[in-house]
């Protein structure tokens, strides 16, 4: 059950939003979202937490901070979206934008393993997870040729420490 308590932990007061919609008006991803960003805050204000957390909006948010920069009430919506995603994962809510989540998971797995991004590992894991084998097959060889995708991972020395950080802070997805 998502409670007011959990929402309160986002350390921002959703009541300060007066629903002017400036966040949505400036959002570069707005056209691809089901719900406008201001509606997400509205759901929270009304206690309709599930609606907010089930919306694809929170996953499509690119974290560009346009909304946070322009908000007349200085509400940091980008940060609020971070918090909502984290809650959604913890609560085991099904993510509509599956591929986005799979990408983030694949990306973080490389960091967990190597300490730094490993392009080839990321691509392999992402493609296996999504079954999307065909996208970007045209640019990949060029990337190799230009030396932009390395064959081997960039391992850091303290990989144990890295794994440790992940184990202590990673959000375990239900």
């Amino acid at each position: 059950m998502i409670t007011e308590e959990i929402i309160r932990n986002t350390s921002q007061n959703p009541n300060i939003c007066y629903q002017c919609g400036k966040c949505s008006a400036g959002c570069p991803i707005r056209n691809y979202m089901d719900d406008s960003p201001n509606k997400i805050i509205r759901y929270i204000q009304l206690g309709l937490y599930e609606k907010a957390l089930n919306s694809d909006t929170i996953w499509l948010c690119a974290g560009c901070l346009t909304c946070s920069t322009r908000c007349p009430k200085e509400f940091d919506l980008a940060k609020f979206m971070d918090a909502l995603r984290e809650i959604a994962l913890k609560e085991g809510i099904k993510v509509k934008e599956k591929n986005l989540l799979k990408f983030h998971k694949a990306f973080l797995n490389q960091i967990k393993k190597h300490g730094r991004a490993y392009e080839l590992g990321l691509v392999r894991e992402y493609k296996l997870a999504t079954g999307d084998m065909m996208s970007d097959v045209d640019v990949a060889p060029a990337m190799f040729m230009k030396g932009k995708i390395g064959i081997l991972p960039h391992n850091i020395k303290d990989r144990k420490g890295m794994k440790d950080i992940f184990e202590k802070t990673e959000v375990k997805i239900k």
């Binding site: 690119a62 974290g63 984290e86 973080l108 300490g115 991004a117 950080i165 802070t169």
Partner: peptide
């Protein structure tokens, strides 16, 4: 140095 976590980290776990 290690990866800063980029977008993937902060959108899934603030502490991470």
């Amino acid at each position: 140095w290690n990866c800063c976590g980029a977008t993937s980290a902060h959108i899934t776990s603030h502490r991470l």
